[in-house]
Amino acid sequence: MRAFVIILAVALSGCMASPTTTGAGGNPEYLGVETRLLDGDLVGFKVAMTGASSAEDVERYARCAAAQYALIRGYGFARHIRTLTDQNGGVWTADAVYTISPALPRGLRTIDAEVTVADCGVSGIPTV
């Protein structure tokens, strides 16, 4: 019985998606990031991609861009304000707004830029 469970577990592990597998084809294509400084520490990001399986994939792409931008500007943190997503003809887009700061900002939707950029690299998601 134990051997059967191990064989079943190994067989099923091949069916699980890897962290970078998204969309019907399993091949996400990241189409670029447009960054706009809105006001002081308020920054907007427009991203687009194909191969996303849901809005979460394109939101993650925007988060990666925000984290890298914070590091480029010499800041260590960002706080998510809002993200609007859309899907049209297989292309997913996100319009996200973040604040960037040198210290951990108040709020629940904060990100540590270094940790997030590292995670994006492991997941195969490009940054700015």
Rank of each mutant, 00 (worst) to 15 (best):
E29P: 02
I125Q: 00
G23R: 01
P28D: 00
V47N: 05
T127Q: 03
L31F: 06
E59Q: 09
A17P: 09
C15L: 13
S123D: 13
V128L: 10
A24I: 14
A67Y: 00
R109T: 14
G32F: 08
R82G: 09
G74C: 01
I72D: 13
A65L: 10
A62P: 02
N27W: 08
I100E: 03
E56F: 11
T50R: 10
W92A: 03
I100N: 08
R79N: 10
V128F: 06
I100Q: 08
S54R: 10
D57W: 09
A103I: 07
F45G: 05
Y75W: 10
A24E: 15
H80K: 02
I111D: 10
G76A: 15
I6P: 03
L38N: 00
I100G: 07
G107I: 02
F77R: 01
L108C: 05
D86N: 15
R109I: 00
A48K: 14
G44T: 05
G14I: 03
Q68I: 06
P126A: 03
Y75C: 14
V43R: 01
G32E: 03
G121K: 04
G74Y: 07
I72L: 12
E56P: 07
M16S: 07
G26T: 06
I72V: 13
M1Q: 08
S123L: 06
G107Q: 00
P105E: 12
Q87A: 14
R2A: 13
V115Q: 12
P102M: 05
T22Q: 14
R82H: 11
L12K: 09
R73D: 04
N27Q: 13
L104F: 02
E29N: 08
Y75H: 14
E29R: 15
Y75P: 03
E59W: 08
A9M: 12
N27S: 12
Y30P: 04
V115N: 14
